[in-house]
Every structure is written in structure tokens, then in C-alpha cells.
Design a protein around this nucleic acid. Structure first.
Lengths: 109, 109
DNA sequence: GGGCTAATACGACGATTATCGAACAATATG
DNA sequence: CATATTGTTCGATAATCGTCGTATTAGCCC
């Protein structure tokens, strides 16, 4: 069981931008950014079905935004901050710092 | 005949990211970034049908990335650099500075 | 083995999207 | 007016997309 993570030098800008353009996925990235360590997928309060969450995590992983490592029955997930910064310097930070309507509606970000 | 341009404080990050995530639209933005002044839509060497171009320009305009002003039979188009930088500081610059596969395939960018 | 939990695969659905060519609209010129 | 140019609208198409529930898989523990 190996999860595919694209190598840093193969990260495509359009894939990254597309992954970040969905409100749910942007929210996932935002929540992950608040964590100090890798966290299980299911621990994030997304409010969507598990299968939809799986779909979104997959898009994020294949675009190179997250790294998932199987740990027991769960998947510890974390942002590939260093890789993203190496490939697209500053992009993630700017996205995370940008005004987000959903953050406000999600309350207490 | 009035074209709708969203006000700066209503620009949505997901709309901007989505607009930039399409290879053609990213190319349009890149080409526009190289111009010193507003240029007619048709002057950009896109290699797609005019109706498809119209569609893309519309997406970019509605997301707030470009401004179009009717001039005679043409539409002078320019990037809303200042507005984008005011709303999402640094985002456009980073996107323009990022490695683009299409730029290489388009040759001589 | 059984039981439990976390996550995925699968099929389905409605909506959206990028693309095109043909017809059309808007503008300018003689 | 007719003609030319630029850009848009329209209808169509195939593909993609986000979402869901159900069945299944993977891993762990007793």
C-alpha cells in the first residue's frame, strides 16, 4: 500500500492552484496549517461525508500539497510546506494569509 | 454596454485561484503581464478559437484578474495588478514568477 | 477467528466546465 | 447603405467535478 506523492520538482502550478480553488480543500489546508504535527484525516472537523473527504484529500495529495502516511488504521496527514515553498516560494503563505470568507463562517479561526 | 468588474474588496480567493488554474487562462495572464499597456483581446497569440478566448476572458474578468474597456470594435484588456496586490498581496507576482511548463512549450517567453 | 475503527472503492447523480463552429452584434469606414 | 473587423452569443459536446451512500478494505486488538 503505497500512496503516490509527486516529487517536488514535478509539482504543477495549475494542479496546486486548482486544488486550492475548492472551498472545502482550502479549508482543509487551512486547518492543517494550524496543526503542529501530522494529524488523522478524520480528526479535522470538515462537516462533509467521509467519502467526499477522501476525495478531497486525494486531490490535495496528488497535487503535492499534503503528505499522507498510513499509521495503523489511520492516515497521518500534514502539509508539504517545505516542498511547496521550494517549488513556489511564498505561495502557500500568501494563500493562508489571504482573506477567506469561509474562515469567518467557520467561526473562530 | 457595461462590463462587470467585481470591486476589489469583493474579490474571492477561490475564484482567483480557479481562474488561474486553467493552463490557457494562466497563459493569458502571463502574456498580459508582459504588456506595458492595455491590449486588444485578439492581439494575444493564444491559438484557440475566438469563442473560447471570449469565455476565458470572461472568467478572468469576473474573478477580478483583468479589466476590459470597450474601445471601438475592440476590447482593451489589462491586468488589475494594483487591485490584486491590494487584496492578495504578492499572489500575482508569485504566480508569474513560478515555473510554468506551458511557458516553455510556448517558446520564447 | 470476531469485533471495531478509519479510510477507500464504487456507482450514481446533477452541476459545471472547456471547447468548438455558426450566427450574430457592435463599431468604424467609405 | 455596404463592407470589414472585433468580439459575443448560442447550442452542442464530451469531460470533469463535487457530493453522497453503500459496500469494502486495511489495520488493530482481544
Amino acid at each position: 500500500m503505497s500512496l503516490h506523492h509527486p516529487p517536488t520538482d514535478e509539482l504543477e502550478l495549475t494542479a496546486v492552484l486548482h486544488a486550492l480553488s475548492d472551498p472545502q480543500r482550502l479549508r482543509i489546508v487551512q486547518l492543517l496549517a494550524e496543526q503542529d504535527t501530522a494529524v488523522p484525516c478524520g480528526s479535522l472537523p470538515l462537516g462533509i461525508s467521509k467519502s467526499t473527504a477522501t476525495h478531497h484529500f486525494r486531490v490535495l495529495r496528488e497535487a503535492g500539497l499534503i503528505e499522507q502516511s498510513p499509521t495503523g488504521t489511520t492516515k497521518l496527514t500534514t502539509l508539504r510546506r517545505a516542498d511547496l515553498d521550494a517549488r513556489f516560494p511564498g505561495l502557500l503563505e500568501i494563500v493562508l494569509a489571504s482573506p477567506l470568507l469561509l474562515a469567518a463562517s467557520a467561526s473562530g479561526s
